[in-house]
Design a protein around this nucleic acid. Structure first.
Lengths: 363, 363
DNA sequence: ATGAAAGCGCTAACAC
DNA sequence: GTGTTAGCGCTTTCAT
């Protein structure tokens, strides 16, 4: 197949104006202010444009002039299929996209490779033609965060980190939400508890490893840290030693990751009667693993999740529902329709405890 | 929280140059051609930039000058959470994103609302600052396709439609792939077959409806049409009347859609012994439904899918595996690293028949 | 190694 | 209702 009948030199607004012997303003108005010229002239302009293969005003030139790029940037710090393996993250993106669509804005995915301390990724962030950035749930020592800040554009940080200067935030009260869930679990009588979390540090390891007490120097994911703390709060409240909590970090997003982490936790403390997880995907995987091992839920083991993804709800998982899609919408709104005050805002969304069929009194 | 210490007027390359009493070229070089100036001067420039809060060359202005936007546009014609409810589509996006990341290009999601004949969506396509477009699996009468073409940018169409002027294409041989699968099913002895497909026309309806023989005036999704045809080919080849094929269209992407469609098919012809589906998600849903109705697979019913998504493979579904992620990579490569000839190309990827545990001889 | 000049294609005041 | 005049912020020959 061959290229279409492209004109030698691409037509521009100016060339069209010359051709029609009118001013550039008139052509511009034909596209942007139809009421500023006679319908007749406008039709002639549009007809000539079609004939000359003029695709309309160049978006880039327009952006330069109007100082509006017409797009919002979403920084992606992990491989996409990894980021999107979590339905909650996907919902977030869908919500953000919905908001952008309504506002007629584009959504620019800016993928910056992980690990690589600097380089490609930096260039991508610096080269993004956007009016604002959304950063979704990254480590508080993420190397690209300063680069985004350097752009000095409106910035919305979702979930974490919590303390980015000049940024608006959207999130939930992770600690309180997890505390409520843990209160419920402890209330059922559980005393030996295991907690499966996503990785707490930005460094990668394979599989799952038990993690000691919180180490602020190493824990860079505020959300996970807060959820762990929520469980400890609940334990402390009833006189349990928070340090007895077995925390296992999972470094992968595989369908088997939760099961592997569960195994590690039970090995560390075989007397565990409740496995709490900081994500539904971990919990569901753990449940599959327990079933394969012949351990009944909730009869022999209580399992809880976090997020409230459809799969978890349909399987009756005891969990906390958080409005993932709404987070996306809010983030989008904050950029596409910013508060008039010009100040940054912190939006804390509601969560809901779901008492499912995977929790009960200890055996 | 308050805004950061933003300078009154945003610093530009020119203002930096004035401040340092060097030419704009030098500043530009400091960022783009480090070897064109002394390391010393460069450091001074970068230091001054930091102090003045200059975030580096404006991406939009640079794009205007270099005539490269640094991004690829992906037109999304359906609500994102709908588009992304199919793992195959998600894999495609991941592959495309991967390719863009490698090339240091951004990926601009251009969401144009469905239905709305024109309007918002058109503006979004016209306003996208991109170097090329990817269109993924849209109806051949999609109202936004002409708008994309009007942009006269490099264009890659994935899956469908097949005949877009001036566009490169990436896809598979849907008819042959489905034919091979149907040959296998027919070879097992099935004579009464039901086929569950995604919608064939752009109009929407609710639930699932049985569809008569192919109607070219109404069937605007080439891929679905071809797959239907593949089944008919296989039937005709063994002397079966292709018109006896019960085709049921599903208009939704719900977890229950396949089951509902299966129900419609079995109502239309209770003697059906094989339910073929044009997507794994439909097949898996149909299987769930059949199990709930006490119909055993494959003992009492053969079920087949299409795509080869992880869930299908792990559940042993008989299906056709297609390289969804590779489609995305190829589409990206075609735009980010176009063939030197300047001509469009058509890439047809390989598929693989997976004989799973959901197919057997009719009861 | 550094600078001067010329635009990239467009929109927004402001005239007429 | 239409045209004139200035840039938006940058890169790129081409000189020096």
């Amino acid at each position: 197949m061959s290229r279409g009948p492209a004109p030698r030199r691409r037509a521009t607004l100016a060339s069209l104006a010359a051709e029609l012997k009118v001013s550039r303003t008139t052509i511009s108005n034909a596209y942007n202010r139809p009421d500023q010229l006679s319908a007749d002239l406008r039709d002639r302009v549009l007809a000539a444009a079609k004939e000359m293969g003029y695709p309309g005003p160049d978006p880039v030139a327009r952006s330069l002039r109007t100082r509006r790029a017409g797009a919002v940037g979403l920084m992606i710090t992990e491989p996409l299929n990894y980021s999107f393996s979590d339905p909650a993250a996907l919902d977030f993106v869908a919500g953000l996209a919905e908001s952008c669509e309504e506002a007629g804005q584009g959504l620019l995915l800016v993928a910056v490779g992980p690990n690589r301390t600097t380089g490609e990724g930096t260039a991508a962030v610096l080269a993004a033609g956007v009016d604002g950035f959304v950063v979704y749930s990254v480590s508080d020592d993420d190397p690209y965060l300063p680069v985004v800040q350097q752009r000095a554009l409106p910035l919305v940080v979702v979930d974490q980190p919590k303390d980015v200067a000049g940024a608006s935030t959207v999130g939930i009260d992770d600690r309180a939400a997890m505390r409520e869930l843990a209160d419920y679990v402890v209330g059922l009588g559980h005393r030996e508890i295991g907690l499966l979390t996503m990785r707490l540090g930005r460094e990668w390891a394979h599989g799952a490893t038990p993690s000691a007490v919180a180490d602020p120097d190493r824990d860079h994911f505020g959300v996970q840290r807060e959820r762990v703390q929520g469980v400890r709060d609940a334990m402390a409240a009833v006189g349990l030693d928070p340090r007895s909590l077995v925390v296992v970090e999972s470094f992968e997003h595989l369908p088997t990751s939760g099961g592997a982490a569960a195994e590690v936790a039970l090995e560390a403390n075989p007397r565990i009667t409740a496995l709490m997880c900081t994500a539904d995907v971990l919990a569901l995987s753990a449940m599959d693993h327990l079933r394969a091992r012949g351990i009944y839920v909730p009869g022999q083991m209580t399992v809880t999740g976090f997020d409230g993804i459809p799969d978890a709800l349909s399987r009756g998982l005891t969990t906390v529902r958080q409005p993932s899609m709404e987070k996306g919408r809010r983030a989008g709104r904050l950029l596409n329709d910013p508060p008039r005050s010009g100040l940054t805002v912190d939006e804390v969304l509601e969560t809901e405890l779901i008492r499912g069929r995977t929790s009960g009194a200890p055996a």
